[in-house]
Design a protein around this nucleic acid. Structure first.
Lengths: 254, 254
DNA sequence: CGACGCTAAACGTCTGACGTATTGCTCCAC
DNA sequence: GTGGAGCAATACGTCAGACGTTTAGCGTCG
């Protein structure tokens, strides 16, 4: 977010600078979006605030309604504002939502994973780093209610076709990350899991494998329930290593 | 943090369902954006592809140019496409860029950190988990060139006003994350560091503290250079703990 | 008293036009 | 022949106005 690096033009074609093309003038819709974003992030426009309608907003910034709309599209695609139709409709500053962030990061990761820069094995390594530590923390901190949630997630039937109407079964790994009480760990781990999940071809995995996975989950859940941090961490590490073998055997590249 | 009990709606206005409003029909600009995004992510439109001009794009989707433009604004704000003006201009599918992702995640984190859901101490904990492990991996893997980069980052003068024209000094912690050779670790750690950096009031920290920090950096760099993984990890852990004290003493809330 | 239908506010979309940045090519001067 | 100035073409950027669509609220009628 550096404020528009001045094209530092010392009249020298000796610096090819590859593909770094600077946009000399920022388009109006960008300026409007940036200004609004700044105000939102600064708290001048707190969550829930209703912005003026598009026509008025345009007038306020000295631009047309179309331009104001494009600015709003930008903000809305960044989940900074939401738009409702009808009377009482309008554009509202939206509440920060961790789930949304997880979604975005996941999709960004999905893109990067297609490049040679980020390999699936990198994700697996990161996961191996993150989740055992998360298991340890969960074992140290989980209260009764959380323990119950983790147990439930471990016991839940691994059902791929998830009968609509009841979404009670969040993935075990997700639940465990949340059980640490540290949202940041969820934010880092969940996108990785999401990418891995969408990348794995389940077809090639026999049912027996899944049973084994579930057994691991239950074991870890019990360790957490009884506060055995070290054992929880160790079990989780073994589990992830095992999972990694699954992923690596079955090939990732969709 | 029990996973959001499903609203189990058994008819009856007794379940207000709070603010869960569903958008019955997705606006056209959203549909167009989604369709294009799908094609980009699927590889049907590889990076570098030049899309038809806005008018033609609109015609292709059966919408007006304004609608097509709004769709493009959405994609462009997600860094999936870039637009250039002039003849030879147009809209191009952009190359996946890790730096861009880091930036986005960082700004999303910045928003969340203002809520009670994500506390700065969560970031510090995550960092404490990530960076020592990164130091270990770096010590195990770094080649000569990487070692040199880490050394340089540790030796670089801690200069806040970063004389423009030479950006050689990336933050030590950033360099170290990259030295692991695992982009995913950078992706997870860098946004955290960015948020912390922008949050810390440097004013309240005496120069002596910074000297101490630099000494730590140099020590860690040496451990990495000589491949002492365990010691690198330990030093980094101590360093982060020390830094945490700095942050906690000085207050975060801007 | 309840259901139906109207109304108004805002967003959603369309059309057409003009401004502007950028590049390539032409044409003229030297 | 070469080099620079200037024109033309392309596609994005912006504007203006109009009409459709969605939704909440309210009034009316049975």
């Amino acid at each position: 977010m550096p404020p528009q690096p001045p094209a530092s033009g010392t009249a020298g074609p000796s610096t090819p600078v590859a593909h770094l093309r600077v946009q000399r003038v920022r388009p109006a819709y960008r300026q409007v979006a940036d200004e609004l974003r700044t105000q939102i992030l600064a708290g001048t426009l707190p969550a829930g605030t209703r912005l003026p309608n598009e026509a008025e907003l345009g007038r306020a910034f000295g631009v047309s309604r179309s331009t104001a709309r494009e600015a709003l599209r930008v903000l809305s695609s960044q989940h900074l504002v939401e738009t409702l139709r009808g009377v009482q409709g309008g554009t509202f500053v939206s509440e920060p939502d961790p789930a949304r962030v997880v979604e975005d990061v996941g999709s960004a990761l999905g893109v990067l994973v297609m490049t040679p820069q980020l390999h699936v094995s990198d994700l697996l390594e990161a996961r191996l780093l993150l989740e055992p530590a998360a298991a340890r923390l969960a074992a140290q901190r989980a209260d009764a209610e959380t323990v119950e949630a983790v147990r439930a997630a471990a016991a839940a039937p691994r059902d791929d076709r998830d009968p609509s109407g009841f979404v009670g079964h969040l993935d075990f790994h997700t639940t465990l990350l949340m059980a640490t009480g540290n949202l940041m760990l969820t934010l880092m781990g969940q996108p990785v899991n999401d990418v891995l999940r969408t990348r794995l071809r389940r077809a090639g995995v026999e049912a027996g494998e899944w049973d084994k996975v579930d057994a691991c989950h239950r074991e870890i859940a019990e360790h957490i329930a009884e506060g055995r941090a070290g054992e929880a961490e160790e079990s989780m590490r073994d589990h992830i290593v095992e999972l990694r073998r699954l992923y690596e055997r079955d090939g990732f590249w969709t």
